[in-house]
Simulated assay, not measured.
Amino acid sequence: MALRTGKNSEPYSPGVPGDAVRPVTVARAFRALPSAHREILTETVFRERSVNEAAVRLGLSVDEVKARVYHALRALRVALDTPEPGR
């Protein structure tokens, strides 16, 4: 499972282009995120809500949703690019 950063974009895979990311790796990285990051990514990526829909659902401004998605995706990328302990 690769993370889609937009409805019409290519999947994100860390490391060398073309590398696949195992679903368990993505799940582990996702669970390691702060709850606010998990919440915004759940609404926009996994539930495929638009920024406007997520803003209404979460009671936030559109600009706040955009900022939170940006920061959450950056944090997820860092988590995916960080080697697991013991590896």
Rank of each mutant, 00 (worst) to 15 (best):
E10P: 08
P85Q: 07
R22L: 13
E39T: 10
S50T: 15
E43P: 02
L60D: 03
P23H: 11
V62M: 09
P83T: 00
S9Y: 09
A72H: 08
P83N: 03
I40F: 02
R87T: 01
R68H: 12
P85A: 09
E48S: 11
V26N: 12
R28L: 11
R68M: 11
S50H: 04
L60R: 04
L80M: 15
T82E: 03
A55W: 08
R49T: 06
F46V: 06
P17N: 06
P34S: 11
V16H: 11
G86W: 01
V56L: 07
L76M: 13
A29I: 10
G86P: 09
R87A: 05
N8V: 00
A20E: 12
E53W: 00
F46R: 10
N52P: 04
V69T: 07
A32F: 11
E48D: 15
D81M: 07
S61C: 03
Y70F: 13
S50C: 04
L58K: 00
T5I: 08
L80R: 05
Y70S: 09
V65S: 02
V26S: 12
V21Y: 03
P85V: 00
G86K: 03
G6E: 09
A36E: 14
A75P: 03
E84G: 02
V45F: 06
R77V: 13
E10M: 14
L76Q: 06
G86L: 06
P17Y: 10
R47M: 05
A27M: 14
L58N: 00
A2H: 05
A55T: 07
T44I: 02
V16Y: 09
G18Q: 12
R38K: 10
V51Q: 03
F30E: 08
T5H: 03
L58A: 06
G18K: 11
I40N: 01
R77F: 11
V21T: 15
R57I: 04
V24S: 15
A55F: 06
K7V: 02
N8D: 08
V24L: 15
P83D: 00
D63L: 00
R38E: 08
M1P: 00
S13L: 09
E64F: 05
V62Y: 11
R47G: 06
I40C: 01
H71K: 04
S50D: 11
R49M: 10
N52R: 15
R31C: 12
V62W: 09
L76Y: 09
A72N: 07
V78M: 13
L41G: 01
A32K: 13
S61N: 05
A67T: 15
L41E: 02
N8A: 06
H71L: 06
L41W: 03
G6L: 04
P17W: 08
E43M: 02
P11Y: 14
S35W: 02
V56M: 05
V45Q: 01
A72P: 05
A72E: 05
A55L: 07
F46D: 13
G15S: 14
N8C: 04
G18D: 13
A72Q: 05
A29M: 10
D63I: 00
L41C: 06
D63E: 04
A32M: 12
A27T: 08
A55K: 08
E84K: 02
Y12S: 07
